[in-house]
Design a binder for these strands. Structure first.
Lengths: 252, 252
DNA sequence: CGAATTCTTGAATTGCCTCAAACGCGGTGG
DNA sequence: CCACCGCGTTTGAGGCAATTCAAGAATTCG
């Protein structure tokens, strides 16, 4: 086995080994040697400006993308041009996974803020994973985690009311931000009311009204894109988490 | 609600190579030699009676399951005991994929009819896939396809009305049945109105009413669990497929 | 046969949507 | 500097699709 250091090549290389997201991202569980191999196949730290697309539905699938910084929206357009938001992605998350089965991107991936991504050419990742079981497992994990995330979204869409949906959305964001080292209670919403509503199956007016109601009830404060969670326990209870408030008895 | 009956576990060896689902299932693209290796790790053709569970949420993840025959429902129970149906699975499909990331089954898997499954111990599948790239790719494909399927479900839940939802549901079933060699227009619904409604985010009464309306409009005929699609084109148009009826102009 | 389950249909209610107006903020140009 | 606009957001009023409540029909099964 070779033990190469990171190649100081042309590109603005910032190796996985020095990335502060390595505990969340693909590198989890890889040895330093394997990490270097992974570094060798990535196109690191590409810049994407707010509003720009990393790929569009219909383009041939080549790469996965790992988010270094920023926020992305995945969405598609229906036959009659209506948008459907399928998810938001935060730093440390990998997107593009849906395209593996067909070889074509099924959705559009747009940056909601100025962002940085690491491009992961899938063919080379596949090869490498064949040699590095820990990486293989990591890929499975990401794919499977995406399924779980989508199941949660389906549950939200399928069985919750407006207020509950928004609470669940905020809590999901909060948790994911916290795992990335951000505050769990002070959120900056990179997406518009319309995008939130679209994702949650409600109209932007309803999102706005519901934010106002949650604020009036003291669960949150919102001002434009700045949102603070003031009562995590009650918010969790609203979203259907049984263990939330604590002193309340839990239904069977 | 659950209806577990006596458990029978008959292990009949029916190799993948002679399975009529091998063109849909894990074996796709494997050489005869690799197929034998796959056969060697599977627990083939286990019987599951209607109402029985293959696994339940919370149990440790060990195996994926490939459906030989029958229909399965994946669902989970919320904190307050409400059911959320996350999908239905047909012969040739693989389920259990959502459990890979956490090592614990996240949902319950119940047979809706007397069924047969092939159990695929995941640890051994993983090992084998490490040696057989075609199998590896096949696993990716299944995982990724599940994501696409869930995105479709999210679109249905997030942006369609009752009639459109039901149309999309029927078309999805129809397509999947057709690829399995069944009639695309004569469907046997293995699931109750309540289960359909739960999956589609509507009440059973609404499902029933909407079936009646589709029948009145000549798109389908329904009689209990027997459903026939009479006007595929109009059904597709209802579900938002642009190219459906043909003579209609498509909105910009 | 009676009991349980599933499905259908009706009538009243409601949560969210639609339509509409106004607000606040950032940017632009006079 | 301020008037002006565009955009995202907030808020109100009325309407409607789907739900809730309720009753009855059809089918299965012991």
């Amino acid at each position: 086995m070779t033990n190469p250091r990171r190649s100081t090549e042309a590109k603005l290389k910032v190796a996985c080994s020095s990335c502060n997201l390595r505990q969340l991202c693909l590198p989890v569980g890889l040895s330093p040697a394997d990490l270097d191999k992974l570094d060798a196949i990535l196109n690191l730290r590409q810049r994407v400006q707010a509003g720009q697309h990393v790929y569009r539905a219909g383009e041939p699938f080549r790469s996965l993308y790992a988010i270094r910084s920023g926020v992305f929206k995945l969405y598609r357009l229906s036959a009659d041009g209506k948008e459907q938001v399928l998810g938001f992605h935060l730093p440390g998350e990998l997107f593009g996974l849906g395209a593996i089965s067909t070889g074509v991107y099924a959705v559009n991936a747009m940056a909601l803020e100025d962002s940085h991504v690491c491009e992961v050419p899938f063919a080379r990742l596949e090869e490498l994973a064949q040699q590095v079981p820990a990486l293989q497992r990591q890929i499975y994990r990401f794919l499977s985690a995406e399924i779980l995330q989508d199941w949660n979204a389906m549950t939200v869409l399928g069985s919750m009311q407006a207020e509950e949906r928004l609470a669940a959305f905020l809590l999901d964001l909060s948790e994911r931000l916290q795992r990335r080292g951000f505050s769990p209670s002070a959120l900056h919403l990179s997406m518009s009311r319309e995008e939130i509503g679209n994702y949650l199956g409600m109209k932007l007016e309803t999102v706005s009204r519901t934010f106002s109601k949650l604020q009036k009830d003291g669960l949150i404060t919102v001002e434009r894109r700045l949102l603070e969670i003031r009562d995590m326990a009650r918010l969790k209870k609203l979203a259907g988490c049984a263990e939330a408030v604590g002193r309340e008895s839990v239904p069977a």
